[in-house]
Structures are given as structure tokens and as C-alpha cells.
Design a protein around this nucleic acid. Structure first.
Length: 285
DNA sequence: CACTTGACCTGTCCGC
DNA sequence: TGCGGACAGGTCAAGT
């Protein structure tokens, strides 16, 4: 489900409400959804919520963290004491009281608020570990730079692209060790913004195109965050609201519709690495 | 070594 | 209406 803009939207919501809350209990309704020792969470205070790519990291006191990866259909919903934030599922197009049958973990806090982890497809995970163990996780240790932070420079992107000339541009963008947080929607949308075909090989990019791709990635992600992300079916933020990016999307889920830029092309969809790739065959070259 | 495919799951949607 | 197959935001292991 969620890519950088969606996870960042959830993070901002949680960061507003959660810090200072003390964990009182953890109800694990699907055992495999939690890795590590949940008993260590009891009595800990949530200090801060960070994001590394698509991974949410909850910093607790005493050097402990818990992480949440939502994978395809995960949701994190915060409910204040006595409030009734509803959990969307799915595609149903309506919200239901929490917990419901796709609620995998419920965290209860001393102040009466609760955090619900819903996940239809059960790919998502909550992990409890020390800060050191977290940093050593292969996925974290090899994660590429945050595309909206200063570490992600044009020079970095150029150098990294030069190392993988034979892979398709979209494949490069989806590889989390190159750049953190880009998924299928924003890979396609970034390529459209850059007017570059996603299936082209990295080695075919000239310096001007690399520069355009660089700014397109940043602009696309910033625009998506400003829309609160994309709600295709399952995604809702920490308080149950949908994101509106798909209303301004140019190619994702617009197969067969006219191109918003050149007005001539009809958006096409092809399979690339087993996933859908959307593009305008006329103005993306 | 680098790249591709299948597996992990549940659910929806489309065509016949 | 029923049924089979394709497809869905991600990542990892296994295979080529």
C-alpha cells in the first residue's frame, strides 16, 4: 500500500498525538504480525515517530524502538480516549468501528488512547527491537537516501545511476537501496513528470534528463504529501482520512485516458518486472 | 554477480 | 449468476 507520501502522512498524524503516551497493553490478534518481545513494550513511553523510507520507527525510552512496515494493505489508526475513529476496510468504501476482522494488533496507552494496526493481506509487520539492532537490520542498513532531504543530491543520483546502466529506470527507482520510499505509483508519476519512459535503461539517460528526473522525483513526492497521499483502496491516514493525490495523478490508474500534458497520447499500461507500469506513449520519450 | 520470478495473503473486479 | 484468472501500494528468497 503505502509509499513515502502515505507513510509520511501517517507519521505526521501520529507525531501529533502519540509522543508522551505510555504503553499499557498490546493485544496481538495475529501472532505473526509481531516480531520480537511485545512484553518489553509495557510501561515504555513513545518519544517520537520517525520514518525511514516506507518504514515507521517509534522511538521509546531506554533505547528501545518498535517499527511498523505496512507493506501493501497495512493501516495505522490512532483513537483518542473515548473517541471513535473508524477503520476503513477495504475497498468497501465505508468505515467500520475498530477493531474489526482485519485488525491484527491493538496497542493501548495509559491515557486511554489506542493504536490499531489493520492489515487485510497480512504482509505488514510490527517489530520490537533495540536501536542498535534496528540499525543493523539489512533493510535499514542498505536503505538509500531520503529523496526529500539534503543527502539526496543531483550528484548522488548521477553517480548511483552510473553504477547500474543496464537496469530499467523504473526498476532503479523502485530499488530501496538507491532511493528510500518510492513505490509503484510515484515511480510512474515521477517518470511522467520527467517525460521519460520508465522502461528505458538507466544508461541511456543524458545529463539533462538526469537533472529533470532528479527534480521530478522531489516535486512528485512533495505534491503527493501535500495531497495526503493516494487512496486507491485501502490507504487512510492515522485518523481515518483518505489522500487525494489520485485526483491529480497523470498516469497511475489512468490507462486508456488521454494524456493530461500532450492531449494526444492515450495512457498505456504494460507489465514491467511483474508490476504495472503506466505511461504516455507520445510525450514520454 | 545481476536480474527475474514466485511466494507471502486476502479480496475485488473483469470477462466468458 | 458463477467461475476462473488477473490484479493490488512491498519485500524477500530462490532460481536463471
Amino acid at each position: 500500500m503505502p509509499e513515502l507520501p502515505e507513510v509520511e502522512t501517517i507519521r505526521r498524524g501520529l507525531q501529533k498525538y502519540l509522543p508522551g503516551s505510555v504503553i499499557k497493553g498490546v493485544d496481538i490478534r495475529l501472532p505473526k504480525a509481531l516480531h520480537g518481545d511485545d512484553k518489553k513494550l509495557i510501561g515504555r513511553t513513545v518519544r517520537e515517530i520517525r520514518r525511514h523510507g516506507k518504514l515507521l520507527v517509534f522511538l521509546l525510552d531506554n533505547g528501545l524502538v518498535f517499527t511498523v512496515h505496512l507493506k501493501m494493505t497495512g493501516q495505522l489508526l490512532w483513537q483518542g480516549k473515548g473517541e471513535s475513529v473508524m477503520g476503513g476496510h477495504p475497498s468497501a468504501g465505508y468505515l467500520r468501528p475498530l477493531p474489526h476482522e482485519h485488525t491484527r494488533i491493538v496497542m493501548e496507552f495509559e491515557n486511554g488512547s489506542r493504536l490499531f494496526f489493520n492489515d487485510l493481506r497480512t504482509f505488514g509487520r510490527l517489530s520490537v527491537l533495540t536501536e542498535e539492532a534496528f540499525a543493523e537490520q539489512p533493510f535499514v542498513a542498505t536503505l538509500g537516501p531520503e529523496p526529500l532531504e539534503s543527502v539526496f543530491t543531483l550528484e548522488y543520483l548521477s553517480a548511483r545511476l552510473k553504477k547500474k546502466p543496464k537496469v530499467a529506470i523504473k526498476t532503479f527507482l523502485l530499488d530501496q537501496t538507491n532511493i528510500a520510499g518510492i513505490g509503484n505509483i510515484y515511480a510512474d508519476e515521477s517518470c511522467f513528470r520527467a517525460a521519460i519512459l520508465p522502461m528505458r535503461l538507466v544508461g541511456s539517460l543524458n545529463p539533462a534528463e538526469i537533472k529533470t528526473l532528479y527534480s521530478s522525483i522531489k516535486e512528485t513526492l512533495e505534491l503527493a504529501i501535500s495531497h495526503g497521499g493516494s487512496s486507491e483502496r485501502d490507504y487512510i491516514n492515522a485518523i481515518g482520512e483518505k489522500g487525494t493525490y489520485l485526483k491529480v495523478a497523470n498516469v497511475y490508474h489512468r490507462t486508456g485516458l488521454p494524456c493530461s500534458r500532450c492531449k494526444k497520447g492515450i495512457i498505456e499500461r504494460v507489465k514491467q518486472n511483474g508490476r504495472s507500469t503506466h505511461f504516455c506513449p507520445v510525450c514520454q520519450v
